[in-house]
């Protein structure tokens, strides 16, 4: 079948303003949107730039906005968009600075994750073998360890529209990851770190992050569990909701 695309273009060397360019490619219903992008790039227009690597939703490179919804181009199939006469619109992730076409600057995003110290902190000398952890304790983090840092949640978050200083949902997923890891010794400090206006308290439960997450992480629920824990430990926390 024929697929029509309208793709966001911006080359900092020549373009003052972003523009949109239309393409038509043949595609099979089971193919990925990424396959269409590759066909455009390899057969029609090598000047188009986007990131990709694993092609099956593990590396997190090809997060973008597809017909207004953030997702991975390698996880969305042609058949989901077929049958409409209108073009499929591909745009870079919102809330990110565009470097070229569909490629965005991820530095501040990773900085936000880094703010929450996404590594195990343990001062006790490591035992000879593994640190014990029960299956129930491991289960608490089982869903959040699926995060692939694709940034679809942060791109989709409506709060980010009005408050770019919000750390965003992905960073809070990583905060959760270590707050609720039974092996970590910084539980209180980690809770305090998340307890600020542009931390957990900016989230007002739009659930867009949860809806778009390619790995089906209950992102909003995880943020709410951090809030609940803060209230449990510190009373109201630094900010009321």
């Amino acid at each position: 079948m024929k697929m029509r695309f309208k793709i966001f273009r911006f080359d900092p060397e020549v373009d003052k303003e972003p523009r949109y360019q239309s393409y038509v490619v043949s595609a099979e219903p089971r193919e990925r949107i990424l396959d269409c992008l590759n066909r455009i790039k390899w057969e029609q227009d090598g000047s188009l730039s986007y990131r990709m690597s694993c092609g099956h939703g593990v590396c997190g490179s090809d997060g973008m906005r597809i017909n207004g919804t953030c997702g991975l181009a390698c996880q969305k199939l042609v058949k989901e968009y077929a049958g409409t006469e209108t073009e499929v619109v591909l745009e870079p992730l919102p809330h990110f600075k565009v470097m070229k076409d569909l490629i965005v600057d991820m530095e501040s995003f990773l900085g936000g994750v880094g703010f929450f110290q996404p590594y195990l902190i343990s001062r006790a000398p490591a035992p000879e073998k593994e640190r014990p952890q029960s299956p129930a304790e491991q289960k608490k983090i089982e869903e959040v360890i699926r995060c692939i840092l694709c940034a679809c949640c942060t791109g989709a978050c409506p709060v980010m529209d009005e408050n770019p200083a919000y750390v965003g949902p992905a960073a809070l997923v990583w905060a959760y990851r270590y707050i609720f890891d039974s092996r970590d010794e910084e539980f209180m400090e980690r809770l305090k770190r998340a307890d600020f206006k542009n931390g957990v308290w900016s989230c007002v439960n739009y659930f867009e992050c949860t809806r778009v997450c390619p790995k089906k992480i209950p992102v909003t629920k995880s943020i709410n569990l951090i809030k609940r824990e803060i209230k449990k430990v510190f009373g109201e926390g630094s900010q009321a909701e």
Partner: peptide
């Protein structure tokens, strides 16, 4: 493998809490 566990790798666990 124990070194990776000490660095925080979230391995699945046995009922006794081992990797």
């Amino acid at each position: 493998v124990y070194e990776l566990e000490h660095l925080g790798v979230p391995f699945n666990r046995t009922p006794e809490g081992k990797i």
